[in-house]
Write a protein that binds this DNA or RNA. Structure first.
Lengths: 228, 228
DNA sequence: GTGCGCAAGATTGTATACAATCATGTGTGC
DNA sequence: GCACACATGATTGTATACAATCTTGCGCAC
């Protein structure tokens, strides 16, 4: 197997590349991430790969098992609930702050994001659309000028993508963009109250679209299923 | 210099050990954390030390500068505000959840924590008292049964300790334990409303006890001061 | 005497080599 | 034929060696 790109990969950029692949569902939950394999793929040594995998494990996107390797995380039903509870605490109030600090330039960024998502959906690039949909939320935290909270939300968004991969119920993804449009309107009006409430409902809708009953989790490999 | 302990150090345990040292102000902000130095101190190779330092940098407790090394982080005034804004979003509602789920065993844990803090203060172990004071908040998240939020709060608490090291204004630390006592009472009554409100006020008091005006930050070395 | 440039030392960044651990398959005994 | 034990292979955990980068001090030119 040849290397992926001609680039000066660092542990951070490899981690970002892997995170995006996970976020876009190109690397589904439970995928084995062998160090040698990744090292060959990126054309780097295991040292750098290990640093990237450890970084992702701190973001709960990768699960490290001692002497067994790294796997794309498989959030449990419980973890899924927790992630959305954390988002419910952080995002509505952050959306309010963003609305209050909104600028025209920031509005353009959010509009461009929504348009890109539409374009990706039209091109049947569902993974990319999902990624952009998440970026919308991260952008809001950035506009709210809360770097610390943005870091948390960014992690929660990526984990949400894994949760969606495992527990998504509905087929129609269009309701999503509708909520983002409504938020955009509230932002355009600098309406903090509406933004907070819309974000709250948006998150509730997201959870409602998941199947979080305590059913057996899908496992890609038999071994994984039995070790649980 | 001889090794610290006879123990099988792993990157995680080294990171935990360093985090506690930072939390207890035994390693003040801007302290240089040389890899060779730490490797010798713990009796391990640089590989493991590096993994620990990277882990701490992901928690924003250590700042890594390319080709220059690792330093105990020095949160800026802005970062300090952000940390407490994040805590304000997470902790009050978490305290409410904890109150609603409180058990007698959990109450005992919290009581023991407060007693230990008193004992530490009496023994003039201020660092240990500060650590225990932070653990009180982490325990609450654990009692609320929110692992994800607990992780975030744990990080924010450690960062708060750095913030206190840099920006603490008042001398009297006794007001602290008073707030924890009040919270304990609310928990004992399973009074979610009070717990949420008390936590909110407690965090406001904490911020008020800091000097977050935009003054020049104290720097331990001249070089650090100039590079900023 | 001051300022620039270069070289030496120190420290981190990366790769490679070795050790430890786990998974798997085979063989032997019952 | 089944179960347990051991050996083999594969993969991760750790240490060491080398390369790259930055700091620092000296020396030379002006």
């Amino acid at each position: 197997m040849d290397t992926i790109k001609t680039q000066q990969w660092t542990s951070d950029s490899v981690a970002a590349d892997l995170e995006r692949a996970i976020h876009e569902h190109r690397l589904p939950p439970a995928t084995k991430l062998g160090e040698d394999e990744l090292g060959d793929a990126y054309g780097i040594s295991r040292t750098t790969v290990r640093a990237a995998l450890h970084a992702l494990s701190h973001r709960h996107l990768v699960e490290l098992r001692r002497n067994r390797g790294a796997f794309v995380a498989q959030p449990s039903v419980r973890e899924a609930r927790e992630v959305f509870e954390a988002r419910a605490l952080l995002e509505p109030r952050t959306a309010r702050s963003a609305a209050e600090r909104m600028t025209d330039a920031a509005l353009d960024l959010l509009r461009a994001n929504i348009e890109d998502e539409h374009a990706a959906l039209d091109a049947n690039e569902n993974g990319r659309a999902l990624f952009l949909s998440g970026q919308f939320h991260v952008e809001i935290a950035r506009i709210a000028d809360q770097t610390t909270i943005e870091t948390f939300i960014s992690e929660l968004i990526s984990r949400s993508s894994l949760i969606i991969a495992l527990y998504w119920r509905r087929r129609a993804a269009l309701c999503e963009t509708q909520a983002h449009h409504a938020l955009l309107d509230a932002f355009a009006r600098r309406d903090g109250d509406s933004a907070e409430q819309l974000m709250k409902n948006h998150l509730l809708d997201l959870v409602a679209s998941l199947d979080l009953r305590n059913v057996a989790q899908p496992a890609t490999s038999l071994r994984e299923a039995l070790n649980r």
